[in-house]
Amino acid sequence: MSKPLHIIRRQRRKRPREEIKSELDMTSMIDVVFLLLIFFMVATKFKQPEGTLRSWLPRDRGTSGGAPVVNPGCRFTLQMSDNIVVCYADQTTLPLHNGVYGSDDLGQAQQDFEGEWEVYGPDLQALERHIQMRKDTYMGVAAKGLPVIIDFAKDVPSVFVVNIVDLCKKLEIDDVAFAAPEIPIED
């Protein structure tokens, strides 16, 4: 006669057991974690610090064909000519970068040009001198000081517009406005 089943189980439990040493294998997890780390290190692109140049829009709309309005302030006009940005300051043509005055004189100067622009543009130092001169001789009554108006053609790279705004900020001119484009607005 065999022993009952529950007695057999008890006897089995009482039998001394060999200690099973179980270790968790961390290798695969570390592999994956390192892969993730490498991915994020390679894919990370830190955000460039950005600032803001404050400006305001004019409240008037531009009109075409009208007589030019006499303005005591300083007006800059940027136009594109043969892949060169020409800057007119109060009806005066400002020199180009490195003192070049026209497309005929560009020559080697344009080849040596290593600025941040893809097209040739006005000399920023001459631009700054002009604004400073106008600011020093400004006799207006505007509370904000010399008003500066920036007018630009549509194909001018935006960096040149920003450069003028930046120079105005440098010379502590707060009244910077953009000329209203001559395009009718449909309400």
Partner: peptide, 25 residues
């Protein structure tokens, strides 16, 4: 091209937004 400034200025003027700032590094 700076024509996008013009386009944005138009839209802002029509929407009665006059505080327009330029981002730069």
């Amino acid at each position: 091209p700076a024509e996008y400034f013009h386009k944005i200025f138009f839209a802002c003027q029509k929407a009665k937004i006059y505080k327009v700032n330029l981002a730069a590094q």
